[in-house]
């Protein structure tokens, strides 16, 4: 079943990427909305949150270079929304461990990535809570800047340290050898 879902997801990506018809996109997005059921609102919120900055930058750059072509801008933004919504729905509904169970190596990578995501998610929540806990008044611009900078630095350094550690652990367990 998971493999069928995986195949449908690839078909969805193919449709959003190779066809340039906004009505087809809207039909597909409506179908995805129906599939999402009770999770519709949380996934829509997550999707909008994820694409807002990206879509704004892409739209603004396009308008700046090519002028205002509303048809093309709408097409691109609906496409981005559709792919992102479909991906979040896919992650919610599909057990990735089962999907990639056919390959041991892929499974290792999925497990490692998943554990990284969970660890970083916990750190991010703690950062957010710590700022909230220490904030008496609304933080000013420089505090927000320092906080954001620190998070970026922390995750960059942690990613690097953890990937070195994981690399050594994988080597130690015979996942690969230096040749």
């Amino acid at each position: 079943m998971e493999k069928i879902k995986g195949l449908l997801y690839i078909c969805g990506i193919f449709t959003f990427t190779f066809f340039h018809n906004i009505y087809l996109y809207i039909l597909l997005i409506f179908f995805l909305f129906v599939l999402s059921g009770k999770e519709f609102i949380p996934i829509v919120k997550k999707t909008l949150f994820s694409i807002t900055i990206f879509s704004s930058v892409v739209t603004a750059s396009y308008v700046f270079i090519n002028g205002f072509d509303w048809q093309y801008i709408t097409l691109v933004n609906v496409r981005v929304f559709g792919i992102t919504f479909m991906t979040f729905l896919f992650i919610k509904r599909v057990n990735l461990f089962k999907l990639f169970s056919f390959s041991e190596n892929l499974m290792f990578i999925i497990v490692l990535s998943y554990s990284q995501i969970l660890t970083f998610q916990k750190y991010l929540t703690d950062f957010r809570f710590a700022l909230k806990s220490r904030t008496i008044l609304k933080p000013d611009f420089s505090d927000r800047y320092n906080f954001f900078k620190r998070i970026v630095e922390f995750f960059m350094k942690s990613s690097l340290d953890r990937s070195k550690e994981i690399n050594m652990a994988m080597k130690s367990r015979g996942f690969y050898t230096d040749e």
Partner: peptide
């Protein structure tokens, strides 16, 4: 705001990981 200011000043939390609390230069 007034209550939040009083509460945040009076009740403080030391997080398990000090890294999550430090962000000033």
């Amino acid at each position: 705001r007034a209550f939040n200011k009083k509460f945040r000043k009076e009740v403080v939390l030391l997080f398990q990981s000090p890294d999550s609390m430090l962000f000033n230069p």
